[in-house]
Design a protein around this nucleic acid. Sequence first.
DNA 1: TGTACATCAGTGAACGCGCGTTCACTGATGTAC
DNA 2: TGTACATCAGTGAACGCGCGTTCACTGATGTAC
Lengths: 216, 216
Amino acid sequence: MAAKRRATRPADLRKAVLEASLALIEEGGIEALSLREVARRMHVTHGAPYHHFPDRAAILAALAEEGFALLADAMRAEMADEAPGSLERFEAAGRAYVSFALEHTAHMKLMCRSELGRALEHPRVCARAGEAMQLLVDCVEECRSTGAIVHDDPAALVLTSWACAHGIAALLIDGPLPGLRAGEHPLDLGHSVINALSSLLELSSRKRRPRRTRRR
Amino acid sequence: MAAKRRATRPADLRKAVLEASLALIEEGGIEALSLREVARRMHVTHGAPYHHFPDRAAILAALAEEGFALLADAMRAEMADEAPGSLERFEAAGRAYVSFALEHTAHMKLMCRSELGRALEHPRVCARAGEAMQLLVDCVEECRSTGAIVHDDPAALVLTSWACAHGIAALLIDGPLPGLRAGEHPLDLGHSVINALSSLLELSSRKRRPRRTRRR
DNA sequence: TGTACATCAGTGAACGCGCGTTCACTGATGTAC
DNA sequence: TGTACATCAGTGAACGCGCGTTCACTGATGTAC
């Protein structure tokens, strides 16, 4: 019967803790993450998780690191379908960001809430965040080298693109948008913002270097 | 001596509760708002605030309403300096949003965190939020009527502008940006994003309707 | 001017609650010989 | 194959804590006559 009890336990408690934590955060935000509730959901004593994480903050840090890694993977995957240096690739990066944010709201909340997790103080988390950002930086630079994007200040453009993608995601997840634009599919709204930014880039670049932009 | 004790109390406890709450939220996020800590800071018993607010949620709702009203006021004030229908007025709206967010981080956190305050379920809060959004909608419409902005899909453009302003504010307040771009003044980064978006709009509009855009 | 009463806002004790964390324990599993 | 031991992960009781909320109270202030 001991074996039977064992069988009902999750095979890998560490992984199960992370999953249950994500579910809690998704439902009620970061402050809804309680080790005791996590243990309760896993049908395990509330002391058990301490064999896998030193404390609550360690769970948040692990999830934040995971989140940034997943984001970078999602961006890479979506960008891989488009030619380097093309505006389509830039769009793909934005779409991937928005899609990731809407699909992984719990990760997103963790990744962008400095005062709570203090996750970005962990060097590994910070490195992962930089990795994701670098994908966008490189993408813009490639687009400038091919002429798909003409812009004086690439750093400002990177920031603007990131702000657009992050902003629409934040408005859709947390903000007043779902209330004010009820009935519209969040992902559609998100992608329409990416498209709008991309078309502005295309129009403004064409004007200054007509016929030089490469489009498939 | 009773009079002396009285003198040390805030003249208007309701107002003082709101101020102390803002300070707490600014320091540690919404979950750091505790009625007991608020009372402690006002040198008053923890039962006292209940004479002014029925519960914790009521404080959050009052602050959210105040926040949206302040945002709309700030946008109106900054926009008033520029001619209606000018791109400068559009920029002013964006600058005002970013400045407000950086100056009122506590209000901002409240206004954009659906799961905690549930503030947007209050009709008065929702009305205030709509009011602020309408300023941007009207501004874009005016710019289209003068030709300062040429764009097929004004709704997507409104959303994109809002996302840009909100996104850079969110990245600066909560996100990994301060870590990744340390040393730069947040407000400068914010305004550079607004400028970048505005210049994209100008370039893309000029191309399609050359010489028709009005600039002072 | 003085008295009686109502109202208001802060007091302080008490309630129950869920939380993070610690710790000695137990029983299952793996390993060395 | 069998024995002795070490390791590991979950148990369950206990700790102290701060919280939101309630409530009978008190004392100051305003009002009616």
